[in-house]
Amino acid sequence: TQSIHIEKSDTAADTYGFSLSSVEEDGIRRLYVNSVKETGLASKKGLKAGDEILEINNRAADALNSSMLKDFLSQPSLGLLVRT
């Protein structure tokens, strides 16, 4: 696993530069990185398409609903625990 911390203040970007997809496997919801913008903040921090997001801001990914995800992604900083 890899811990990634991203700050939007690093650039004038209003997004982190990646998209997520939610997949249900064996009754457990998993979050995967769908795509990463080549010039985006997430790419600079090493996030890659296909990575599994285990935690966002110290909250287990399978416990997050879509409104919580939207809220986290609109925050000025983001902490991710990722399995590559």
Rank of each mutant, 00 (worst) to 15 (best):
A12R: 13
L41V: 09
V23M: 08
I56W: 01
I53D: 00
N57I: 03
I28S: 12
K70F: 07
N57D: 09
S35C: 08
S19V: 07
Y16N: 00
N58D: 05
N65A: 06
N65H: 06
V33M: 00
E55S: 09
E7I: 11
G50A: 02
R59G: 06
S35L: 05
S43V: 11
Y32N: 05
Y32P: 03
I6D: 00
S43E: 09
I4M: 06
E52K: 01
D26H: 08
K45R: 08
I6W: 02
R29I: 08
R59W: 09
D14S: 08
E55M: 07
N65R: 06
S43G: 13
A60G: 10
A61Q: 04
S21Y: 11
G17Y: 00
E38D: 13
I53A: 01
R59A: 11
L73I: 04
V82I: 10
R83S: 03
Q75K: 15
L47P: 02
S77Q: 05
A63I: 12
L64M: 08
G50L: 01
I56P: 02
G79R: 15
E55P: 00
K37I: 12
S35T: 11
K8V: 02
Y32H: 05
E38Y: 03
S21H: 13
S22P: 09
G40S: 07
I4S: 02
Q2M: 14
L80P: 03
R30M: 02
I53M: 00
S22T: 13
D71M: 14
S9W: 01
I28G: 08
A49M: 12
T39H: 13
H5G: 03
D71V: 09
K8F: 06
N65G: 09
K70R: 12
S22Y: 15
E7V: 12
G50E: 00
T11E: 11
S3R: 15
L54V: 08
G27A: 02
S77R: 15
S43N: 13
I4W: 01
K37F: 09
S22A: 12
D51L: 02
K48C: 08
K70Q: 12
G27K: 07
N65D: 14
L64Y: 07
G50H: 02
S77D: 07
L81P: 04
P76N: 08
Y16Q: 05
L81D: 04
K37W: 10
E25L: 07
E52S: 00
Q75E: 14
E55R: 08
E25N: 09
Y32Q: 05
S9A: 12
R30W: 06
S66Q: 10
I4A: 01
I4F: 08
L80Q: 05
D26I: 06
K8H: 05
D71I: 09
L78D: 05
T11Q: 10
K45Q: 10
D10Y: 06
L69Y: 13
S22N: 09
V36I: 15
D14C: 07
T11M: 09
S43W: 15
Y32I: 07
R83G: 06
D51C: 08
L80C: 04
A60P: 15
S67K: 09
N65I: 00
I56F: 00
L78T: 04
T84R: 15
S19T: 11
A13G: 14
T1F: 11
S67G: 09
Q2E: 07
A12T: 14
T1A: 08
E7G: 03
T11G: 13
L54F: 00
G50W: 03
S19H: 09
T1Q: 10
G27L: 01
L41G: 02
M68G: 06
T39S: 13
S9V: 01
G17I: 04
F72D: 09
S66P: 14
Q2V: 15
D51A: 06
Y32C: 04
S35E: 14
